[in-house]
Design a binder for these strands. Structure first.
Lengths: 172, 172
DNA sequence: GAAGACATACTCGGATATAATGTGTCCGAGTGCCCACGG
DNA sequence: CCGTGGGCACTCGGACACATTATATCCGAGTATGTCTTC
């Protein structure tokens, strides 16, 4: 029951990318500098987000990353699942069948009650994450964050964002 | 976001111990055999449950483990926290402070919005686990489980449980 | 002077080492039972 | 025959290796830019 710290970096980067205008991009190196992280390592997580269609990457000079869709359509659950994987945290190993008494498979047609309870809790966890959109995070930060911090963030984004030519000319 | 498989073993063992009568105990070796697990490794998890006052251990011959309190007062959250630790899964590293722009500590008095959202989700997770008592697991199994499996479990418990002398003569 | 081709510099992407955690195992400390011995 | 002391077997508890995952890093593939040559 421990999330990798890459999740924190991924959410922060996504929130930062939500502040870039239009179809501009921001290099991974700039994002890494923004949070004092290893550029090479952050690329790994950004790559995962790209693989899950949360970010888009533009190669070449003046390239970088940007959100693949509006921040209103990106939830924290999307990011967490992209980094940590979609499989549930509790994996039932069906150890109830490994006892000395071997029963027919028909005795285990019903789902293990423990598994059901754990999955129910995890559904609540995911539901709570799903109802928090990335735009909410940004809006809350803009509303209640410290003015100095907001100014510094905006200046950093304005300095490192790179405008692009073709807007949504993204083929699959 | 991945729970150790020891959680599953711990819950199954606790549910089994809920079926022993009175103050009788059950050796860890029997529990391990009941689920086809390594006896030495299961002891590690049972020891954690004992440290968290969920189980009680009786040394010596005819010793073993038993619940430290009625199954109605043991929740899945208690067991999960005992195995996985009480600290939250998402640990905010405060990377927002590690940027190139160094701000005064007064700029970060408010909790990080990302951290707040993640902790809120985790509270929902824990709340769902807390409302499931160990007695519910046992009752559901007794009610809807396969009769053959129930009979086998009862027989196994009856064969391996060891009655004790002093009932609740347990000092802290 | 304008157009095309080439070299270049910057970007992301995947393959590769290292540290931490979880998993699995082993041996030692402690306790109650059983038996032998003595009264 | 009964009480007592000691040996023993069984239990849990903590300390010790191994495997897997997460962390961190490096090098290679790809592309738009800028420049040079040529028409």
């Amino acid at each position: 029951m421990k999330l990798g710290e890459g999740v924190e970096a991924a959410i922060h980067c996504a929130a930062t990318l939500a502040s870039v205008e239009g179809n501009s991009t921001m290099p991974g190196a700039a994002l890494a500098e923004s949070f004092g992280l290893s550029p090479s390592y952050l690329l790994k997580h950004l790559n995962m987000l790209t693989a899950e269609r949360i970010l888009e990457s533009v190669p070449g000079p003046a390239g970088g990353y940007r959100l693949a869709r509006p921040a209103e359509r990106i939830t924290l659950l999307d990011i967490v699942l992209a980094i940590e994987g979609r499989e549930p945290a509790f994996r039932c190993g069906e150890i109830r069948r490994n006892g000395p008494v071997k029963l027919d498979a028909s005795a285990y047609v019903k789902l293990c009650g423990i598994n059901a309870a754990m999955l129910k809790a995890e559904r609540a966890y995911r539901a709570a994450l799903a109802e928090t959109r990335l735009s909410d995070i940004v809006a809350d930060y803009q509303a209640e964050g410290d003015p100095r911090s907001i100014a510094a963030s905006c200046a950093f984004v304005a300095r490192h964002q790179r405008p692009q030519k073709s807007a949504s000319t993204k083929q699959v």
